[in-house]
């Protein structure tokens, strides 16, 4: 595995919606590269016939009866919002 470049780290930060300084990008470039270098050891493990494990639970269908229950009142759902108006969250333009 190759070392991450500064631009790759900036691309990952953009995908993750993280606004970072140049100093942060440089630090994460070093640290993430070191972690990925360790992770590269997995490439040596033979997994050709091995299925992936996404969950340790036995596969089963989990359905419950569709019974109405209490829900959060609007004012409680909005109580923690940094900005709310007329029963809605306030956000900048979505473009």
């Amino acid at each position: 595995m190759t070392r991450l470049t500064r631009d790759e780290v900036a691309h990952i930060a953009a995908l993750a919606h993280l606004e970072l300084s140049e100093a942060d990008l440089a630090l994460y470039q070093e640290q993430l590269s070191a972690i990925l270098e360790h992770a590269a050891r997995l490439q040596a493990v033979d997994t050709d016939a091995i299925p992936p494990t996404a969950s340790v639970l036995p596969l089963r269908t989990v359905l419950r009866d569709d019974e109405p229950g209490p829900t959060l009142p609007t004012e409680e759902a909005l109580a923690n919002a940094p900005a709310a108006r007329q029963d809605c969250f306030v956000v900048p333009p979505v473009r």
Partner: peptide, 28 residues
């Protein structure tokens, strides 16, 4: 300007370094 800018600045300032590291590692 946009909601995306709000996300990025909020998450850049609101998460500490270890959390940002792991979010980036996982995103990658």
């Amino acid at each position: 300007e946009t909601v995306g800018d709000l996300y990025a600045r909020t998450r850049g300032a609101g998460f500490g370094p270890e959390v940002q590291r792991r979010i980036m590692l996982g995103t990658y």
